[in-house]
Design a protein around this nucleic acid. Structure first.
Lengths: 236, 236
DNA sequence: ACCTGAACACCGTTCAAGT
DNA sequence: ACCTGAACACCGTTCAAGT
């Protein structure tokens, strides 16, 4: 039995690196969710023991820090390179540009399961935090804001998007029933729970029940972004 | 050895209820953090087996849903009853009122360790979600907003505060070093990491390094709230 | 109605020992 | 330099069985 290809068995085993481990961790998270990421499953991807992972990484926490840094890099690529630089839109105001950035960042986070959960949980100052921050700060500075306010604005904007998506993709549940993974049916459960409220104590919540349980949150997201951007404009 | 008091041993064992379990869970979270909450430790508080907890609660997820509902109740008490209704401030604009609410809600979340982490992770429609939502919606409606926009505004404001505190109290880390629980020293590590960036690629991030690593985030929080409120005013 | 005991299938992490 | 084997101290959850 001759072997025309050089390797044996699972046919792909380049030398393991920390970077490859991070790749695999992200794949596992996107495939099965953050909760099912374990050092043992990560080790399995490379056919090694769980203990061996600790040669490349100090702890699971450290691993997740590296995952966040990589996700920020991917976010920069997706938001600024693919979405923004692609279409120049020269006569665009900084407000319009900012809006596009926020929407693109949300889209990126929604496209990568549990990305918002990993990112929101920790504040990692790695190489790619600056990569994502710099173009935002540039926009604010060029719009005429001073350094301190630019920093505030960039931090708040990124935080808003992350927090929104975190909430948006969080498991829904009615307290009595417990979690329910069918999103649309539990949304209508939510709506009925709100509509069943006593009218004299919760008139506004009842009236807002329909608006609060709409499945598509794009309008709600844009509402917040637009208020913030208008507030910034007033400020400059 | 007579026993003047009625009970034996640990002196306090009223009949266990789901509410008491939730109480104990919150105490455990506030004492040792969310990560160290386990069904076994929860059971220990009442001198029962872990398996017995499942008679009161369907799962750990369900337990956490109940914890969120209770935290929302506590938040309402703290924010609206203790902070707002206490001082009438009759000539206050709705903008000023809103600002006070946001600040009080942040203070509540900061005062209860990991509260933001539990709340941000899940969207629970229990009885106390409406309790917190109703007074906010009332403010927006009375300010002249329609139902849909009021719902958006309330949702976004609550989400902003939660997301901000989540970030604010998240563990800091520099990607290379790993987590570091001494907050002020890791902040200065962060600052140095940002200042060490190549000046030609990251001029704005470098300049913003000091502003980005200030330990007190109150100003940054207020910045975001104020932009949002101004944006709302423009809108009405 | 409420609780136990024991088990199942997992975890993160450490560490001596191997090659 | 890189990896194993085995152990430690845990997890959430299930389920027959007890009272």
């Amino acid at each position: 039995m001759p072997r025309p290809t050089s390797d044996k068995a699972s046919s792909k085993r380049p030398p393991i690196t920390t970077e490859l481990l991070v790749d695999a961790a992200i794949e596992l998270i996107e495939a099965d969710g953050l909760d099912s990421l374990s050092m043992r499953r990560l080790a399995d991807c490379f056919g090694i023991q769980a203990a061996s992972v600790y040669w490349y990484v100090a702890s699971k926490e450290h691993m997740l820090d590296l995952v966040v840094d990589r996700l920020l890099e991917m976010a920069h690529q997706s938001v600024f390179v693919d979405n923004i630089q692609r279409r120049p839109a020269d006569d665009e105001s900084w407000q319009q540009l900012l809006r596009r950035i926020a929407i693109a960042y949300r889209a990126f986070l929604l496209a990568h399961p549990d990305a918002a959960r990993v990112i929101s949980g920790r504040l990692v100052v790695g190489p790619n935090m600056a990569v994502l921050l710099e173009p935002l700060l540039t926009i604010f500075c060029e719009a005429g804001m001073n350094t301190r306010d630019s920093a505030h604005a960039a931090y708040v904007l990124l935080g808003y998007v992350q927090g929104f998506v975190l909430h948006e993709s969080a498991p829904l549940s009615t307290a009595e029933v417990g979690p329910n993974d069918d999103r649309t049916t539990s949304l209508s459960q939510m709506q009925q729970a709100l509509l069943a409220l006593p009218a004299e104590r919760y008139p506004n919540t009842r009236e807002a029940a329909v608006a609060l349980t709409r499945p598509d949150l794009s309008a709600r997201f844009a509402f917040g972004v637009d208020r913030f951007i208008i507030g910034l404009s007033e400020f400059v």
